[in-house]
């Protein structure tokens, strides 16, 4: 941590990564698998937020929706239409799963943007589990639905015969990179944005550049609000794309 060492000399203190530390909620040092930590807290808040929006918001079942209900219906229609467009009609069966992923990610991202918050989706452990779950589900689903015919997803029959083995190799590699890129995209985006905000926050302690730093924090924060939604959207739409490959492996 050279930046930290330098910072101590010049009066600047950078702790861009401190916000991601997993801490037990009720004191103590050891983090066992069952220990309630700040991860637990913010995930519980995510569940509460989902519950508030989609259950409490729609509790009146109004014909003319209130604002909350409109937002809930908008989210429902958004994901539903996305699955229908990308994965096809038979992908609609998996709507609750994709909706679960999307709601979890979008609320984790937005809650993580609150000051002093902990962003659960900035951890590779979390996004890795999400991505591996999608990857394994999609792969198993593909083999269950199509048997060995699922391997046709790697054998691009529209390409010239000479190129097919090469393309098949590339396809196989890109297939196995999917969970990696899928998880690291989300975690990386969240981590990078929050770390950058933190770095600029440290700059704000210096009087000469603090106005600039505060303006920059505001701008980056606005960008992060956008990114928080877009990353959840991208995660969901890529899940749909992978699902489409499993349901219709022949291009």
């Amino acid at each position: 941590m050279a930046s930290e060492a330098q910072g101590e000399e010049t009066g600047l203190v950078f702790h861009p990564m401190e916000q991601f530390v997993v801490k037990p909620l009720f004191g103590g040092d050891t983090v066992m698998w069952y220990t309630p930590t700040n991860v637990t807290l913010w995930m519980a808040l995510t569940v509460l937020a989902v519950f508030a929006l989609l259950v409490l918001g729609t509790s009146r079942r109004a014909m003319i929706p209130s604002r909350m209900q409109s937002v809930g219906e908008l989210a429902y229609g958004f994901i539903y239409r996305m699955i229908e467009d990308v994965a096809g009609k038979d992908g609609v069966k998996y709507f609750p799963y994709i909706m679960t992923l999307f709601m979890f990610i979008v609320f984790s991202n937005f809650l993580g943007l609150l000051p002093m918050a902990f962003t659960t989706t900035s951890h590779i452990a979390v996004t890795g589990v999400l991505a591996m779950a999608v990857f394994l589900t999609v792969t198993i689903l593909g083999f269950v639905k199509h048997g060995l015919g699922f391997l046709g997803v790697f054998w691009i029959s529209s390409a010239p015969l000479v190129l097919r083995p090469v393309l098949a190799l590339i396809e196989v590699i890109s297939y196995f990179v999917r969970p990696l890129s899928h998880s690291i995209r989300l975690a990386g985006n969240m981590m990078a944005g929050h770390a950058v905000i933190k770095v600029f926050a440290a700059f704000a302690a210096v009087l000469a550049i603090s106005p600039f730093a505060i303006v920059a924090i505001t701008a980056i924060y606005a960008l992060e609000v956008l990114v928080a939604f877009i990353q959840a959207y991208v995660f969901a739409i890529l899940t749909c794309v992978y699902l489409k490959d499993a349901l219709h492996p022949h291009h």
Partner: peptide, 14 residues
């Protein structure tokens, strides 16, 4: 477009 952006961005994230 968003899928394309996601693929292009993944490499930067790497």
């Amino acid at each position: 477009m968003f899928i394309g952006i996601a693929f292009a961005e993944a490499l930067g994230i790497f």
